[in-house]
């Protein structure tokens, strides 16, 4: 029996719009082991952020998580988060304490009218039931120092607009880490940052993971960052996980045509050539009332009749490597199509 801290099973989150049902997350499953990082990659609109929000149960109207299980093991017992209401006492106790999240745009996701210190203090006072403000502040200051905030004493009393993008992201991480979460969800934490600052932030997250034994769900569209951060990777396309495996399986033996297309379409450093890039044709469709077919079929170079008729099941092609494609059989063991 594997020691999973989080198991997501057949999760479905749909948005009920005036012009149809948007299937943002459609039958997504993955597991997260303790101390491990799972990377969720995909292009905009593939449902990676909605998956994260579903886990924290912060989906807003007209969205609804209508099926599936989110089994969270807090070390003592296993609970299914789907059973808790978004505003329930149980969910509030978990959110921001056992599972916390770092958002994409650090500038936009901190409250602009409260100081960094006030926002951190709130998290501590609410979750650790501290009556003592002094002790809480001490904890916050330690955290700010740990995330490498320059001049933490002054920054504690600063408002978000007084900080740079990199500093805001550090404050965000401090805020997420102050309650020592068991799972950290990072939704494109470095996309808005420069490469040199991105390197600092990813190093920081790795350091925390080691120190506090936490698991990370790392959401990004950057294949480079994910190769460095993740242990396992789930590739999403149009609300579904199309391929899921270890970082080596995904990068060294990608099987789904979409994963291979993604890897081939990136310019690789040090491999300059005059040949055009292998772009994936077409655009990402909108999953509004999607037809019963493989979501990738309109752009897939290996499309056959079968692909138009039904949604392929996700199957295990080798140990720990799952692929959702009708043509994945026979491609195991490094076989290129």
């Amino acid at each position: 029996m594997e020691d999973y801290i989080l198991q997501v099973k057949n999760l479905k989150t749909y948005f009920y719009m005036d012009n149809g049902t948007l299937k943002a997350v459609d039958d997504v499953s993955f597991n997260l082991r303790r101390d491990e990082t799972i990377g969720i990659i995909g292009e905009s609109g593939c449902g990676k952020s909605v998956t994260a929000s579903s886990i924290l149960r912060i989906i807003q109207n007209p969205g609804k998580t209508l099926a599936g299980e989110i089994l969270f093991d807090d070390g003592e017992k296993e609970v299914n988060l789907v059973n808790y209401g978004p505003d329930s006492k149980q969910m509030r106790a978990i959110r921001g304490k056992d599972i916390s999240m770092i958002f994409q745009e650090p500038m936009a996701s901190l409250a602009p009218v409260y100081t960094i210190g006030a926002q951190m203090m709130e998290a501590v006072m609410v979750h650790q039931k501290k009556k003592d403000k002094k002790a809480a502040k001490k904890l916050c200051m330690e955290m700010l120092e740990e995330v490498g905030m320059p001049d933490p004493e002054q920054k504690f009393n600063s408002y978000p607009h007084q900080l740079s993008g990199g500093q805001c992201q550090r404050a965000m991480i401090a805020l997420a880490m102050v309650n020592r979460p068991k799972i950290l969800i990072a939704d494109e934490p470095t996309t808005a940052l420069d490469v040199t600052v991105q390197a600092q932030i990813t190093a920081l997250m790795k350091k925390f993971q080691k120190e506090y034994h936490m698991s990370i769900i790392y959401i990004t569209h950057d294949m480079g960052v994910i190769a460095e951060m993740a242990d396992t990777i789930a590739v999403m396309y149009l609300g579904r996980v199309v391929e899921w495996g270890s970082v080596y399986q995904i990068f060294k033996n990608p099987i789904h045509p979409y994963t291979r297309g993604l890897l081939n379409s990136m310019p690789v450093l040090g491999q300059k050539s005059d040949k055009p890039l292998n772009a994936i044709e077409g655009n990402v469709p909108v999953p509004l009332d999607p037809p019963d077919e493989c979501g990738f079929c309109s752009r897939c170079p290996e499309r056959t009749e079968e692909c138009d008729k039904s949604v392929p099941q996700i199957l295990e092609v080798e140990e720990g490597h799952f692929v959702r494609c009708f043509h994945c059989q026979g491609k195991r063991n490094g076989g290129e199509a």
Binding site: Q198, Q200, A227, E228, V247
Partner: peptide, 17 residues
């Protein structure tokens, strides 16, 4: 050195600015 490489077998001698 700060550019992440999309290859898990590559070890990066990163210079942290």
């Amino acid at each position: 050195s700060a550019i992440p490489v999309a290859d898990p077998t590559v070890e990066n001698n990163r210079i942290m600015l």
